[in-house]
Amino acid sequence: MPLGLSSLKKSIWIYHMACSPCNNCDIEILDLLTPRFDVERFGVVLVGSVRHADALLCTGMVNRQIKPRLQEAYLQASKPCIVLAIGSCAINGNIFRKSYNMAGPVDRAIKEVDPNAIIVYVPGCPPKPEAMISSVVKAIGFLDTLKAKAK
């Protein structure tokens, strides 16, 4: 899908999903929109519906209750769609990984419904806003390689 990929590169629309995080990753994501970091200058916009999104920003350790909702939301997103697992929680569960309510980190939950999903990992607790910006840039670079492959 070269057309989808090339248009995706221009302006990434993101949708933010909090899958039982501690909230800190989430406020750092919001920080991105405000005057200090202002990601809108790169064309990154936070949208209100998952159906408009090109990238899902998932934070948190994904508990049993939120997991089906996360999977449902991922399936509703228009493809191609990048998943950014933001924070250590989303990558491996962080300090919560032994919890009885843990239902697997973000990548496992997503790969259960789509084994080919593109997942970008942004480590840190919380990651700095700069790290998040750089991860989006890297994801765009990754799309380039995908595009080359598709040709």
Partner: peptide, 16 residues
């Protein structure tokens, strides 16, 4: 599963 993350899972390279 009481602790789902502790189950052996070869695919998940992120498991510590």
């Amino acid at each position: 599963e009481a602790f789902p993350i502790d189950s052996p899972d070869k695919d998940n390279t992120n498991d510590l």
